[in-house]
Simulated scan of single mutants.
Amino acid sequence: MKKLPAEVVASLLAITTVLIALPPYHLPPWAIFISWAATFAMGGPTPENLRKIWPTLPVGSLFAFLIVLCFRQASTQFTGASFIVAQMVILFCLNGSMMFLARVFPALSFIPGMFFGFASYFATLFGGFGPVPHDPVAALGAVIAMNALGPAYAWLKERYSAPEGAKKPWQGWQQEA
């Protein structure tokens, strides 16, 4: 099978995100791009890298979800400076717990993956993405699904693209200087 230029494959994959963002689900397409780019930032979609990133993305999203729920509960109990302190304690405890998992479970050792999932969740929830805008549970499902697609898109891009160092079609007719 003849492989296509990387730009063509990546662009064909990118246009599918337009459909993903359409109602009624209004899924966060940029969550795909975040985890897709993260996969290449860690060296590409090798089996080892995929085993590192896929488990950590939803862990980060889950902890962000817990932070949102705890902040909401704290907002019913505290106001003013005490609410700010409560948020700081919640964030410290949950963020530290999330990172501690990487120390205890080798499968979760790719901490940047957790933070990609973490940031993707907040952007999904506060950006109003998902089938129910601003719903914490709907945002969690939406972001986990879309973050999972990013490494798959990275793999597809590599699978169907010609090697990036390959001779370009226009190089045959260029004059040498």
Rank of each mutant, 00 (worst) to 15 (best):
K2F: 10
K3D: 06
L4P: 02
L4E: 13
A6L: 13
V8N: 13
V8F: 15
A10I: 15
L12R: 11
T16D: 01
T17C: 01
L19I: 00
L19Q: 00
I20Q: 00
L22M: 11
H26A: 10
H26Y: 05
A31M: 14
I32R: 06
F33Y: 13
I34N: 04
I34H: 02
S35I: 08
W36V: 03
A38H: 04
T39F: 06
F40C: 03
F40P: 01
F40A: 03
M42F: 08
G44F: 06
G44D: 10
P45E: 15
P47Q: 15
E48Q: 15
N49E: 11
L50M: 14
R51F: 00
K52I: 02
W54H: 10
W54P: 01
P55W: 00
P55Q: 04
L57T: 03
V59T: 09
G60T: 02
G60E: 04
S61H: 05
L62E: 05
L62K: 03
L62F: 15
F63S: 02
A64N: 01
F65D: 04
V68E: 07
V68W: 10
C70W: 09
C70D: 11
F71H: 09
R72H: 07
R72Y: 06
Q73S: 07
A74G: 07
A74W: 09
T76L: 10
T79W: 08
A81R: 11
A81F: 11
F83Y: 14
F83E: 10
V85G: 11
V85W: 06
A86D: 11
A86C: 12
Q87L: 10
Q87P: 00
V89N: 10
I90N: 11
L91C: 13
F92R: 03
F92G: 12
C93I: 15
N95C: 13
N95R: 03
N95D: 15
G96Y: 08
G96S: 14
S97K: 06
M99Y: 03
M99H: 05
F100Y: 12
A102L: 09
A102S: 15
R103E: 09
F105H: 05
F105L: 09
L108V: 02
F110Y: 15
F110G: 07
P112R: 03
G113M: 09
G113E: 02
G117N: 08
G117K: 04
A119Y: 11
T124C: 14
T124Q: 10
L125V: 04
L125A: 07
F126S: 01
G127I: 06
G128L: 09
G130F: 08
P131V: 12
P133E: 11
H134V: 01
H134Q: 04
D135F: 01
D135G: 03
P136K: 04
V137D: 08
V137H: 12
A138L: 04
A138W: 04
G141N: 06
G141S: 05
V143D: 04
V143N: 08
I144P: 00
I144A: 02
A145S: 00
M146K: 00
N147A: 08
L149I: 06
P151S: 14
P151H: 10
A152H: 05
W155H: 12
L156E: 10
K157W: 10
E158K: 14
S161A: 14
A162C: 10
A162V: 14
P163L: 14
E164A: 13
E164C: 08
K168S: 13
K168E: 14
W170E: 13
Q171V: 03
Q171L: 06
Q171K: 05
G172H: 04
W173D: 12
A177Y: 11
A177E: 14
